[in-house]
Design a protein around this nucleic acid. Structure first.
Length: 327
DNA sequence: GCTCATGATTGACG
DNA sequence: CGTCAATCATGAGC
């Protein structure tokens, strides 16, 4: 610190005593009176003076000796090249979420799982959420790639700069090739750490987006009255075997303005709840069977006809006490 | 705010 | 892969 101060003060003094920038060696012929320029000139002058000094070879050999003694210590400090399982995990995750790939449609994920229609027969709600999700994911992807590019460029520039600096220094002091490599390695590892942070925060952003989307999806909306009627009509008119075929499901979905998977969910829930508490559904059954009496809703057609729900394939009717069809 | 209804999710099973 | 059964989470009625 003290030496630096002395150097600066000497340089300043030197600058003050010279009316214009002149290094005395003819290196600089510019009429530049700025302090920074003068300092630079002074520095190059000193470098030149050192390189040409008659004691330079002796100094160099002394420095070589010191280097030989300390090189072991340098090796000891070398970083352990950890294989980075965490980085691999992050990479895999970003790839799976479609963030790593350039500008392509995100594969899988909750967006694809989402249906095309919403409860209540409003088929646009989900697509809105869907596109919103995709837009936000794309935004995250763009930020990720631009930041990554910035880091990579900065890393390249910094490495080149440091390499040049070391090469220049190697003229005045011994710089081993391993030392250069080590320096480059250190720079790379530092930038890798920054990249890892970027990847980590990107992952977090994707996870947050995803959980928000899932939360939104989980929000339940009751089906419209019409949709429930359509489903109930089918259920009670096929009470013996309430397992609509794929075509029937599609037809019901179309009629009710809901998705096929919602139809499947509804039938799954209905069968179980009906079986568990048939008494409770008696009134409902009476209403729907009365409505559909002689008006069979052939949405794909029933698989069989009995009086109670049974598991497909088993052919074993569920113990049934009610409801009874009106006589 | 409580309770019940109901759509969605999850894990096991055949 | 479809279904069952349990469970979660929210809507709706009071």
């Amino acid at each position: 610190m003290g030496t630096n101060l002395i150097c600066v003060s000497v340089t300043l003094e030197w600058c003050m005593t010279h009316s214009r920038c002149s290094d005395g060696w003819g290196f600089c012929t510019k009429d530049d009176f700025s302090l920074s320029h003068m300092l630079l000139c002074r520095l190059s002058y000193r470098k030149h003076a050192l390189n040409c000094h008659r004691m330079k070879p002796a100094l160099f050999s002394v420095l070589c000796e010191i280097k030989e003694k300390t090189v072991l210590n340098i090796r000891g400090v070398q970083e352990e090249g950890l294989p980075d399982a965490q980085l691999m995990r992050l990479d895999n995750m970003l790839l799976a979420e479609g963030v790593s790939r350039p500008e392509k449609r995100a594969r899988g994920g909750p967006a694809v799982a989402a249906g095309t229609a919403t409860p209540g027969g409003c088929p646009n709600d989900n697509s809105l959420e869907h596109s919103d999700y995709r837009a936000k994911l794309s935004q995250i992807r763009q930020i990720y790639h631009s930041e990554l590019e910035k880091y990579e460029q900065a890393c390249r520039e910094f490495t080149t700069h440091v390499t040049n600096l070391l090469q220049e220094q190697s003229r005045t002091r011994p710089v081993l090739p391993e030392e250069m490599e080590r320096m480059v390695g250190v720079i790379h590892s530092k930038f890798r750490a920054i990249q890892m942070q970027l990847k980590q925060s990107t992952c977090e952003a994707v996870m947050t987006l995803r959980s928000r989307f899932l939360d939104a999806r989980r929000k339940r909306r009751n089906f419209s009255k019409h949709a429930t009627e359509v489903l109930n009509e089918y259920f009670y008119s096929h009470l013996s075997n309430p397992y609509p075929s794929e075509e029937a499901k599609q037809e019901l979905a179309r009629k009710g303005g809901i998705t096929v998977s919602q139809v499947s969910n509804w039938f799954g829930n209905k069968r179980i709840r009906y079986k568990k508490n048939m008494g409770k559904f008696q009134e409902e059954a009476t209403i729907y069977t009365a409505n559909t009496e002689g008006n069979t809703t052939e949405a794909g057609g029933p698989r069989s006809q009995a009086s109670c729900p049974s598991t497909p394939g088993s052919g074993e009717p569920v113990p049934c006490t009610s409801p009874r069809r009106p006589q």
